[in-house]
Every structure is written in structure tokens, then in C-alpha cells.
Simulated assay, not measured.
Amino acid sequence: MSPLICPSCGSQKIVKNGRIHNGKQNHKCRACDRQFVEAPQQKRIDQRTKALIDKLLLEKLPLAGIARVCDVSDSWLQQYVNHKYATVPYKRRTSRQKKGPLTIQCDEIWSFVNDKSNKQWIWLALDVATREIVGVYVGERSEHGAQQLWTSLPAVYRQCAVAYTDFWNAYGCVFPSKRHKAVGQETGKTSYIERFNYTMRQRVSRLVRKTLSFSKKIANHIGAIWMFVHHYNESLHD
């Protein structure tokens, strides 16, 4: 039998390195760390499988689990997810158009990217009447974060809405004082947005408090959040 040769550097210093998703032997080059399988077979991923993956990305499943369920490679799935999240629009698709009395609830929840020292706060605003998420910002928990949430709101909300929030002082520094109401949980005035936060933590695996599915790239982290927000808003009208 001919010795295995690394397809990258030509070295024959090859060792076995576990198996890939379909059980085929994986190899690793000791010279350049390239991993490869012998006589690989290119597998075309059909649209049906991609549609299933899109649905599974909205559930509390790690990428490794999705790869096993859909019988695709980890590397292909990661590339697909990177592209998917990069093309998610960072803009709300909401039904509210006309001016009039509006009420929103706002809150921020903690998350992280790569490790817990890299905190990323998810700022959200919810229309009480339609239950739609109408404002989103991911970043620092500061006055700047509150400003970005305010800026993310459609103009009709910035002009007309009364906003109920917790007592985090950044809101009071940014939101117009006549239309900002800081309240405690016991009032129930922020119950809808708090409920949405629980739903998002349960559905988006990278937001579960104790998980190995945390985001390693900020772009994917934000893309996953926006993808869920779009799905949630659209589901309200199904």
C-alpha cells in the first residue's frame, strides 16, 4: 500500500485523527497540521437539507448536533452558517406604519462572545400592542447602548411611543423624559419583553447561560439574534 501524502505540503508524516461525520477515517499531517480523508467524495447538499438546517438554527441545538442530524460535515455547516448570518438584514420588518398612541417595553440581557470576559448586551424594544420586536442593538451596557437602541427604533416610535424600562440609568439619559417610565418587575409593565427574553434564551443555544454552544465570532452572534428576531416577528402573523 502506498504511503499517505499530505495534500498541502507533500509530507508523509501522517497519523490517524479520529473519524468524520460519516465514519470515514480522518488523517492529520504532523508537518503542517492539515486534516484530510483519503479519496474524499464531494457531497452536494440539496435545498431540502438547507431548509431543514435553517429551521434547526432557530432551535436550541449546537452546530455539532445539527451536523449529525442532517448528515453534513462540521466544516461545511460552519461555512454555511457564516454565510447565512452574514446575510441576515440588521433591520426590523415590522407592521406598524401610522402615528398614534404607542407603548413599548425595553430591556437588556447579558450574553458573551468567545469567553465571559467579552460581554455583549442585547438591547430590545417590544411593541405592546403587536408584540413585535421593534428595536435591537447588541453591544455594551452603557449610555451608548441605550442610544443605539433608541436609534434602532422606527421613526414613528421615537416620535410617539411611551417606553417602559427597568431602572438602568442609561435609559433616562437617552429616552425623552416625558415618555420614559422606569418601573419594577412587580408592576407587570415590562412583562412582555421579559417573557420574550426567556423565550430567546431557550431557543437560541448560544444564549443559554451554561452552554458549550457560545458564539466565537461577534458577527455570528449578532446574526443569530437578528435571525431569531425576524422569525419571531413573522410568526406573529402566521
Rank of each mutant, 00 (worst) to 15 (best):
C6L: 11
Q12G: 10
Q12Y: 10
K13N: 12
K13W: 05
N17P: 02
R19V: 08
I20G: 04
H21E: 14
H21V: 10
K24F: 05
Q25Y: 04
N26H: 10
K28C: 02
R30A: 03
A31G: 09
D33G: 12
R34A: 15
V37C: 14
E38A: 15
I45H: 11
I45Y: 02
Q47D: 14
R48T: 12
R48S: 15
K50F: 05
A51F: 08
A51Y: 08
L52W: 11
I53W: 05
D54Q: 03
D54C: 06
L57N: 01
L57F: 11
L58Y: 00
E59G: 06
K60P: 03
P62W: 02
A67N: 09
R68D: 09
R68G: 04
V69H: 08
C70M: 08
D74V: 03
D74R: 13
Q78M: 12
Y80S: 03
N82V: 00
N82S: 15
K84G: 07
P89T: 07
P89V: 01
K91Y: 11
R92C: 12
R93F: 06
T94D: 06
R96P: 05
G100A: 12
P101S: 09
L102Y: 05
T103E: 11
C106L: 08
C106G: 15
D107V: 07
D107P: 01
D107E: 11
E108F: 06
I109N: 08
F112G: 01
N114A: 14
K116R: 15
S117Q: 13
S117V: 12
I122V: 13
W123V: 01
D127G: 13
I133M: 12
I133C: 14
G135M: 03
V136D: 08
Y137K: 10
Y137Q: 03
G139I: 00
G139M: 13
E140T: 02
E143W: 08
E143G: 15
G145R: 06
Q148R: 13
W150Y: 06
T151L: 13
S152L: 02
S152G: 04
S152W: 00
L153C: 09
L153F: 06
R158M: 07
Q159L: 08
C160F: 15
Y171V: 07
P176G: 02
S177W: 04
K178L: 09
V183P: 00
G184C: 11
G184T: 02
Q185P: 12
Q185T: 11
T187S: 13
G188Y: 05
I193R: 13
E194G: 11
E194W: 02
R195L: 08
Y198D: 10
T199Y: 02
M200A: 10
R206S: 00
R206C: 04
R209E: 01
K210A: 07
L212G: 14
S213W: 03
K216Y: 04
K217Y: 01
I218R: 15
G223M: 01
A224D: 02
M227F: 06
F228Y: 09
F228D: 03
E234F: 02
D238M: 14
